[in-house]
């Protein structure tokens, strides 16, 4: 039976309360007057309130690191934007990609970029790569309150570490936990599929251009199985955003090069839709 909450007329004992068979007050309130519970305040689903950005992949190569993100933002089951940018240069030697609540994520990136530049200008020297990764963790931790309300922001950070002369990748959780990843990593709704693809494709001795190709392949697999991740939009010529970081600094892969790589991947998928074949043993 449904609980009638608006009792009309003076009734000493509402009859529907007699029907409850529990000794938990919380259960009774949840069933009869859920608006009184703290959890019921605020939006039921944040997905319908703000766009969500989806899959980011990053992988280290022999001479640097590659980060790529698809271009789709979703709002519930709708596509909110087809050409959103989720991968950014953080400074001259690092890149950051963001999955999660798009508006907050872009604000976090904006703040992070100013944070790094501000430090560099005041101190006269850039932060170490670990220092940058830690600063990003603090910013994400600051978002914990909103994350609990459903507006989660999960970044992926990668950069060139001048001290050890290699590219490094850092992943995060919503509480600001920062973890270094070896080889490759992926975040966002399609990350499971992208990581699966990278497991089979990744080689530590990749050149940067091979790394770019692997990243585009992994994003294709993510888009193949996750509706919130956008595949390459050949009709509109919208390709993933790919950023490389090497000893020479950060660079966004040009539109023409990316079109070439994407077309190559799409052509190979026409022959074998599930992607490159891996050896069994």
């Amino acid at each position: 039976m449904t609980a009638d909450l608006n009792f009309k007329g003076p009734r000493l004992v509402p009859f529907d309360l007699l029907a409850e068979r529990t000794s938990s007050f919380c259960d009774v309130v949840a069933r009869t007057q859920p608006q009184l519970l703290p959890a019921a305040r605020g939006p039921a689903s944040s997905a319908d309130l703000a766009p969500t950005a989806t899959t980011i992949v990053a992988l280290t190569t022999a001479d640097g690191v590659v980060m790529a993100g698809d271009r789709r933002a979703t709002m519930g089951s709708l596509i909110a934007q087809r050409d959103i940018q989720k991968v950014f240069a953080a400074d001259e030697f690092s890149a950051v990609g963001i999955a999660g609540s798009a508006g907050l994520a872009i604000e976090v990136v904006k703040l992070f970029r100013v944070e790094l530049e501000h430090y560099e200008k005041i101190e006269g020297a850039p932060l170490t790569l670990d220092g940058k990764a830690n600063r990003l963790a603090v910013l994400i931790r600051g978002n914990l309150g909103l994350a609990l309300q459903g507006f989660v922001v999960i970044p992926l950070f990668a950069g060139w570490d001048a001290e050890c002369g290699r590219g490094r990748i850092f992943s995060y959780d919503a509480t600001g936990g920062c973890y270094e990843e070896t080889g490759f990593h992926s975040v966002g709704s399609g990350s499971v599929f992208a990581r699966g693809a990278l497991k089979k494709l990744y080689r530590p001795d990749f050149t940067v251009s091979k790394g770019v190709q692997a990243a585009v392949q992994a994003l294709f697999d993510a888009a193949d199985d996750d509706s919130a991740t956008g595949g390459p939009d050949l009709a509109r010529q919208i390709y993933p955003v790919v950023v490389t970081v090497t000893q020479a600094g950060v660079a966004r892969v040009g539109e023409a090069d990316l079109a070439k790589v994407t077309n190559l991947v799409v052509a190979s998928r026409q022959r074998r839709p599930d992607g490159p074949e891996a050896k069994l043993a």
Partner: peptide
């Protein structure tokens, strides 16, 4: 100098 950087960064943000 530091005050100027702070002023400019805050305004730009």
């Amino acid at each position: 100098r530091i005050a100027g950087i702070r002023h400019a960064d805050i305004r730009g943000y």
